[in-house]
Design a binder for these strands. Structure first.
Length: 664
DNA sequence: GCCGTTTTCGGCCCGACTGTTTTCAGTCG
C-alpha cells in the first residue's frame, strides 16, 4: 500500500519488465520476446534520465532496443505500476518461480516442469522436492542436477554470493595465474572477466590459458589450493568453487583454454562484458562474419529460409592472436577493456569518437596523500616523487590540526627538502544540513580545503532530495576546493547515500569545485558511473590514492581505472595539469590568496587549457526549458538521439547553432 | 518484442558441457 505513495521510477519500471521476461521464459513463451523484455529492463535500469520525461518527449523509441510495444507498456506501468501483459503472466504463474529460476541447474524449462508436475512455486518448495527425491522424477533431471540444486540452495542460505574488491580479486587472480604458469605446456595465461575490465567488485575469477595440451592444464587448475568443489571439467574449460571467507558463500573460478593462435579472440570473449560481446557478434553478423572465442570466420550464406545453414562457417579470416585483430575484422579500433560494458562504446568506436582515456602516466601528482605527521608525509611525498610526480597534496583532517600555521610551515619545509611542490590541505566534514565550518583565515592559510560528504552514519537516513540539497549547498558555499566521498559508500559493506549526482556535478562544474575520485579500493567514490555522469557535467576530477602508507600510494592506479571506466579524458582531471596550473586553479578560487610563491621546484610545461564541450557549456549557460534540458542531458549521458547527433556532426562553427536550432 | 547494408518478414551470439532423450535439449557463461 505504501507503494502507491511513491512515484514510479526507472527502477520500478525496469523491475516489471524483468519480471515479465523471466515469467515469460518459464511459461514457455517466445524466448526472443522474453529476452527483449529483459533487454528493455536493463536499458531502463541504466538510463540516467527519468523514463517519464523521455516518454513525454517522444524520445523512448530512439533508444535502440525499445520499440512501440514497450512504450505503451511503460506508459501503463508509470500510471498504474503494472501493465496488462504483466498481470496476465502473474495470473498464470506464481512470482516465486523466479527465485527457482535463479537456482543453479534450474533453467526455465525445469522451473516450468517443477511447477506443473510437482506444484513447486518457490524456493522452499524446490528444496523440499529436491531433498525428497521428487525433483529427480522430472524429465531431463538426473542425480547430478539434483545435487547441484541442493548444493546451490545451501549456498544461498549462507548469504548472497560473495564478491571481492577489485584489489583482492587481482591478488587472488595473480596467485592462480602463477599457479597455472608452472605447467610448462602453458604458453600464455591471463586473468580475464570483470577484473580485467577493472570493475570495482568481482563476482568470480576468470582465467584464460593458451596451450596445446589442455588436459594437464585442467588437472593443474583443479589442484589449485582452496578448490573445494568441481562444477565441471571438460577439454577446454573447467569451473570450480573456491573455499570462501567463513560465514559467506564460496567463490567460483573459471578456466578457459584456447590454442595460442586464438589467444586474442579468447581474451576478448572471456573479458566480456556479456552485453559487449553480444553487440560485437551482432555487428559481425551484419558483416557476414561469425565471431567466437576461436577467431573470426566468414559465414556462408544460403539466403532466407535456411536458418541453421546460415550458421555454417566457411573460412577463418583471422586467427585473432591479439585483440586488435578481432576488432579490426569487424571494422573497429581497439576498445580497451574498461569500456567494454555494452554502454555505447561500440557506437563511439564506429564513429571514431572513443575517448582518449586518462592514464596513470598523465598524472603529475597525487591529490590525496593522507599523512598524520610530517614524518609520514615525507615518506608519502618521497614515494610520490619516485613515481615521477611533480607535486603532491598533503591532506589532514581539520580536527587533528592543532596549529594550522605550524602545519603549513611543515609542508613548506618538506617542499624545499624534497624538491617537490607540496600543497597542504585540510579535510572538513560537511554537516547534515550541508554546512561547512571553514573560517576565512584557515581558508587563506592552507592551499586546499576538502569537503568530505560522509561524516556520520545518520546522514544516510536523509531522503534523496535532502541528500542532494545537502551536497548542493556545500558545493556552492564557496568554502570548498574539492568535494570528497560524495556518496560515502564502502563497497560490500555500506551502500552509498541515495542522491542525485548529476545536479551536484553540474554545480561543482559551475562553482569550480573539483570532485575527488578516491583510489581506496573500498571506496572508489566517485563511482565509475558518477565519472561517466561527470563527463557530461564537466566538473574537474581530483584523482587520489587516499594513501596513508607508502605502499598505498600505488592505489592511485585504482582511481585511474575508475575514471577510465567513466570515459574520463585527461582534460577533465585536475592532477593531469602542471603544478603551476593547479596552483593557478586554486588561486582563482581565493582572490586574496598569498601563496602563488615562486617555487624553487622546477616545473614541466603547463598543459593547455581544458577544452570545454560546447554542449556542456550550452547546458550550463543558456536558459533552456525543462524538456530541452532533459534531451540535452540525456544525449550527454549517452542516450541515442540520432537527430541531435547528426546535427552536431556537421563540422564547423555552426554545428552547435544547428543543434540548438533543432532543439528549439 | 525489436530490428533492418537480408528493411515490414525472418532472424535474433556462440560454444562447451551435462545428462540421459541413443542424437540432442537444457543450462551456463
Amino acid at each position: 500500500m505504501q507503494q502507491e505513495q511513491r512515484a514510479v521510477d526507472n527502477a520500478d519500471v525496469a523491475a516489471v519488465f524483468l519480471e515479465m521476461g523471466e515469467l515469460l521464459a518459464i511459461a514457455g513463451g517466445d524466448l526472443y520476446r522474453s529476452r527483449a523484455f529483459r533487454t528493455t529492463a536493463r536499458i531502463l535500469e541504466e538510463l540516467t534520465t527519468p523514463v517519464g520525461e523521455l516518454l513525454l518527449l517522444n524520445r523512448l523509441t530512439s533508444i535502440r532496443g525499445i520499440g512501440a510495444g514497450s512504450v505503451e507498456r511503460i506508459q501503463q506501468i508509470l500510471q498504474t505500476g503494472t501493465c496488462a501483459d504483466h498481470q496476465k503472466l502473474l495470473q498464470r504463474l506464481p512470482t516465486g518461480l523466479r527465485e527457482v529460476l535463479h537456482v543453479r541447474g534450474m533453467g526455465p524449462r525445469h522451473a516450468r516442469l517443477a511447477f506443473e508436475m510437482l506444484g513447486v512455486s518457490n524456493r522452499e518448495q524446490l528444496e523440499w522436492v529436491a531433498r525428497n527425491g521428487l525433483l529427480r522424477a522430472l524429465p531431463g533431471v538426473g542425480d547430478k542436477t539434483v545435487d547441484r540444486v541442493i548444493s546451490h540452495l545451501d549456498e544461498l542460505k549462507i548469504g548472497p554470493p560473495p564478491r571481492l574488491l577489485l584489489r583482492d580479486a587481482l591478488l587472488l587472480g595473480a596467485r592462480l595465474v602463477d599457479w597455472l604458469k608452472e605447467d610448462p605446456a602453458v604458453v600464455r595465461v591471463e586473468q580475464t572477466g570483470s577484473a580485467r575490465r577493472r570493475k570495482e567488485t568481482v563476482g568470480d575469477l576468470d582465467v584464460l590459458v593458451a596451450t596445446a595440451r589442455p588436459a594437464p592444464c585442467v588437472q593443474r587448475f583443479l589442484a589449485f589450493p582452496g578448490v573445494k568443489e568441481v562444477l565441471l571439467a571438460g577439454e577446454s574449460r573447467a569451473s570450480v568453487v573456491l573455499e570462501g571467507v567463513p560465514g559467506r558463500g564460496a567463490m567460483q573460478a573459471d578456466l578457459r583454454i584456447v590454442v595460442v593462435e586464438s589467444f586474442g579472440a579468447g581474451l576478448h570473449y572471456f573479458t566480456g562484458s556479456k552485453q559487449h560481446n553480444i553487440q560485437v557478434r551482432l555487428r559481425a553478423n551484419q558483416r557476414k562474419l561469425a565471431v567466437s572465442e576461436h577467431g573470426v570466420w566468414e559465414r556462408k550464406l544460403f539466403g532466407r529460409n535456411h536458418g541453421d545453414e546460415n550458421r555454417k562457417i566457411a573460412r577463418r579470416i583471422t586467427p585473432g592472436t591479439v585483440e586488435g585483430d578481432l576488432f579490426a575484422a569487424v571494422g573497429l579500433p581497439l576498445i580497451v577493456p574498461e569500456l567494454r560494458e555494452g554502454d555505447g562504446e561500440i557506437d563511439a568506436a564506429d564513429a571514431g569518437r572513443l575517448p582518449r582515456l586518462v592514464e596513470l602516466s598523465d598524472l603529475r601528482g597525487d591529490l590525496g596523500l593522507r599523512a598524520r605527521s610530517a614524518a609520514e608525509a615525507a615518506d608519502l611525498l618521497a614515494a610520490s616523487k619516485a613515481r615521477g610526480h611533480a607535486y603532491g597534496t598533503w591532506i589532514r583532517p581539520l580536527h587533528e590540526v592543532d596549529d594550522v600555521a605550524a602545519f603549513v610551515r611543515q609542508a613548506r619545509a618538506l617542499e624545499d627538502r624534497l624538491q617537490l611542490r607540496v600543497f597542504c590541505g585540510v579535510e572538513v566534514l560537511i554537516d547534515k544540513a550541508g554546512g561547512v565550518q571553514v573560517p576565512a583565515t584557515l581558508r587563506a592559510a592552507v592551499d586546499v580545503v576538502v569537503g568530505c560528504a560522509q561524516p556520520l552514519l545518520s546522514v544516510f537516513d536523509l531522503a534523496k532530495a535532502a541528500q542532494t540539497a545537502r551536497l548542493l549547498k556545500a558545493v556552492s558555499s564557496g568554502a570548498l576546493d574539492v568535494l570528497a566521498r560524495p556518496t560515502g559508500r564502502r563497497l560490500l559493506v555500506q551502500d552509498g547515500a541515495d542522491l542525485d549526482l548529476h545536479p551536484v556535478l553540474l554545480s561543482a562544474a559551475r562553482e569550480h569545485v573539483a570532485v575527488e575520485v578516491s583510489g581506496d579500493p573500498q571506496r572508489l567514490d566517485l563511482s565509475a558511473r558518477g565519472c561517466r555522469a561527470d563527463r557530461a557535467a564537466g566538473a574537474l576530477l581530483s584523482l587520489s590514492s587516499a594513501a596513508t602508507t607508502v605502499s598505498e600510494t600505488g592505489l592511485l592506479q585504482h582511481a585511474v581505472w575508475q575514471a577510465r571506466r567513466g570515459w574520463i579524458e585527461p582534460a577533465l582531471v585536475l592532477n593531469s595539469r602542471s603544478a603551476a596550473d593547479v596552483d593557478a586553479w586554486l588561486g582563482e578560487r581565493r582572490p586574496g590568496r598569498a601563496r602563488s610563491r615562486t617555487s624553487t621546484v622546477t616545473e614541466a610545461a603547463p598543459s593547455p587549457d581544458r577544452p570545454v564541450d560546447p554542449l556542456v557549456e550550452l547546458l550550463n549557460t543558456r536558459p533552456l526549458s525543462k524538456a530541452l534540458r532533459a534531451r540535452l542531458e540525456g544525449f550527454l549521458h549517452g542516450d541515442v538521439d540520432d537527430e541531435l547527433r547528426r546535427a552536431l556532426e556537421h563540422d564547423g562553427p555552426n554545428a552547435l547553432q544547428k543543434a540548438f536550432a533543432l532543439l528549439v
